[in-house]
Measured scan of single mutants.
Amino acid sequence: GKMTGIVKWFNADKGFGFITPDDGSKDVFVHFSAIQNDGYKSLDEGQKVSFTIESGAKGPAAGNVTSL
């Protein structure tokens, strides 16, 4: 299901970062391709987001990332 969290950091040049889930679980990798907006796909440190957990090739990653 949907989770919420805070963006820990995001490197716009490399197109990835990490989200710290509100439930205290392990930080989740986020790739820019998972960001659900029409414009420039980037996130800001400290931004609140909702997301799902998808299993990627390198382990769990955030999917369906939407800013709240």
Results as ranks from 00 to 15, higher is better:
1 G>Y: 07
1 G>P: 08
1 G>Q: 08
1 G>E: 15
1 G>M: 09
1 G>V: 08
1 G>F: 07
2 K>T: 15
2 K>E: 13
2 K>Y: 15
2 K>V: 15
3 M>F: 12
3 M>T: 11
3 M>W: 08
3 M>K: 12
4 T>W: 07
4 T>P: 03
4 T>I: 11
4 T>D: 04
4 T>K: 08
4 T>N: 09
5 G>E: 00
5 G>D: 00
6 I>H: 11
6 I>R: 12
6 I>W: 11
6 I>F: 11
6 I>Q: 09
6 I>N: 06
6 I>A: 07
6 I>S: 09
6 I>Y: 12
7 V>C: 04
7 V>P: 00
8 K>P: 01
8 K>C: 07
8 K>F: 04
8 K>R: 11
8 K>H: 11
8 K>Y: 04
8 K>Q: 05
9 W>Q: 03
9 W>M: 06
9 W>R: 04
9 W>H: 04
10 F>L: 02
10 F>Y: 12
10 F>C: 02
10 F>M: 02
10 F>R: 01
10 F>S: 01
10 F>P: 00
10 F>A: 02
10 F>H: 01
11 N>S: 12
11 N>Y: 08
11 N>R: 11
11 N>C: 07
12 A>T: 15
12 A>H: 15
12 A>I: 14
12 A>V: 14
12 A>L: 10
12 A>Q: 13
13 D>P: 08
13 D>N: 12
13 D>G: 12
13 D>R: 15
13 D>H: 12
13 D>A: 15
14 K>M: 12
14 K>F: 13
14 K>I: 11
14 K>Y: 10
15 G>D: 01
15 G>S: 03
15 G>E: 02
15 G>L: 03
15 G>H: 05
15 G>P: 00
16 F>W: 15
16 F>Y: 15
16 F>D: 01
16 F>G: 02
16 F>K: 02
17 G>R: 00
17 G>T: 01
17 G>E: 00
17 G>H: 00
17 G>L: 01
17 G>W: 01
17 G>N: 00
17 G>A: 02
18 F>S: 03
18 F>R: 03
18 F>T: 03
18 F>N: 02
18 F>P: 00
18 F>Y: 09
18 F>E: 03
19 I>S: 00
19 I>N: 00
19 I>W: 00
19 I>T: 00
19 I>E: 00
20 T>E: 09
20 T>R: 12
20 T>D: 03
20 T>F: 06
20 T>Y: 08
21 P>Q: 04
21 P>E: 02
21 P>V: 05
21 P>C: 05
22 D>G: 05
22 D>K: 05
22 D>H: 08
22 D>I: 08
22 D>S: 10
23 D>R: 04
23 D>P: 03
23 D>T: 07
23 D>H: 07
24 G>V: 03
24 G>Q: 08
24 G>K: 09
24 G>M: 08
24 G>N: 10
25 S>Y: 07
25 S>F: 08
25 S>V: 06
26 K>S: 15
26 K>P: 13
26 K>I: 12
26 K>G: 12
27 D>M: 06
27 D>K: 04
27 D>A: 07
27 D>T: 06
27 D>W: 04
28 V>D: 00
28 V>N: 02
28 V>I: 13
28 V>R: 02
29 F>W: 07
29 F>V: 03
29 F>M: 03
29 F>I: 03
29 F>N: 02
30 V>L: 09
30 V>M: 06
30 V>F: 14
30 V>D: 00
31 H>L: 05
31 H>D: 04
31 H>E: 03
32 F>H: 12
32 F>A: 13
32 F>Q: 11
33 S>N: 09
33 S>A: 09
33 S>H: 09
33 S>P: 03
33 S>I: 05
34 A>M: 07
34 A>H: 06
34 A>Q: 11
35 I>W: 06
35 I>D: 02
35 I>C: 04
35 I>P: 02
35 I>T: 03
36 Q>R: 05
36 Q>A: 14
36 Q>H: 10
36 Q>F: 09
36 Q>N: 12
36 Q>T: 13
36 Q>V: 15
37 N>L: 13
37 N>T: 15
37 N>P: 08
38 D>K: 11
38 D>E: 15
38 D>A: 11
38 D>I: 08
38 D>Q: 11
39 G>D: 08
39 G>E: 10
39 G>Q: 10
39 G>S: 08
39 G>M: 10
40 Y>Q: 13
40 Y>V: 11
40 Y>I: 12
41 K>C: 07
41 K>Q: 11
41 K>A: 09
41 K>V: 07
41 K>W: 08
42 S>Q: 12
42 S>D: 08
43 L>R: 01
43 L>Q: 01
43 L>I: 07
43 L>W: 04
43 L>E: 01
43 L>Y: 03
43 L>D: 01
44 D>H: 15
44 D>M: 14
44 D>S: 15
44 D>Y: 15
44 D>N: 15
45 E>F: 13
45 E>M: 15
45 E>N: 14
45 E>G: 12
45 E>H: 14
46 G>D: 04
46 G>S: 05
46 G>K: 05
47 Q>T: 13
47 Q>F: 05
47 Q>M: 13
48 K>I: 10
48 K>F: 08
48 K>R: 14
49 V>A: 02
49 V>H: 01
49 V>E: 00
49 V>R: 00
49 V>S: 01
50 S>A: 12
50 S>G: 07
50 S>W: 10
50 S>T: 10
50 S>C: 07
50 S>Q: 12
51 F>S: 00
51 F>Y: 11
51 F>H: 01
52 T>Y: 11
52 T>A: 06
52 T>G: 04
52 T>K: 05
52 T>R: 04
53 I>H: 05
53 I>Q: 05
53 I>K: 08
53 I>N: 04
53 I>V: 12
53 I>Y: 11
53 I>E: 03
54 E>A: 08
54 E>R: 05
54 E>N: 08
54 E>D: 12
55 S>D: 11
55 S>Y: 12
55 S>C: 07
55 S>V: 15
55 S>H: 13
56 G>T: 15
56 G>A: 11
56 G>P: 04
56 G>N: 13
56 G>D: 14
56 G>Y: 12
57 A>P: 14
57 A>I: 14
57 A>M: 14
57 A>E: 12
58 K>W: 15
58 K>Q: 13
58 K>H: 15
59 G>F: 08
59 G>E: 04
59 G>R: 10
59 G>H: 07
59 G>Q: 06
59 G>T: 05
59 G>P: 07
59 G>Y: 08
60 P>S: 08
60 P>D: 10
60 P>G: 06
61 A>I: 15
61 A>Y: 15
61 A>R: 13
61 A>H: 15
62 A>D: 01
62 A>P: 01
62 A>L: 02
62 A>H: 01
62 A>R: 01
62 A>E: 01
63 G>I: 12
63 G>N: 12
64 N>P: 02
65 V>A: 02
65 V>D: 01
65 V>L: 05
65 V>S: 01
65 V>E: 01
65 V>T: 02
66 T>I: 13
66 T>K: 12
67 S>E: 12
67 S>L: 15
67 S>T: 13
67 S>K: 14
67 S>I: 15
67 S>M: 15
67 S>H: 13
68 L>I: 15
68 L>T: 11
68 L>N: 10
68 L>P: 07
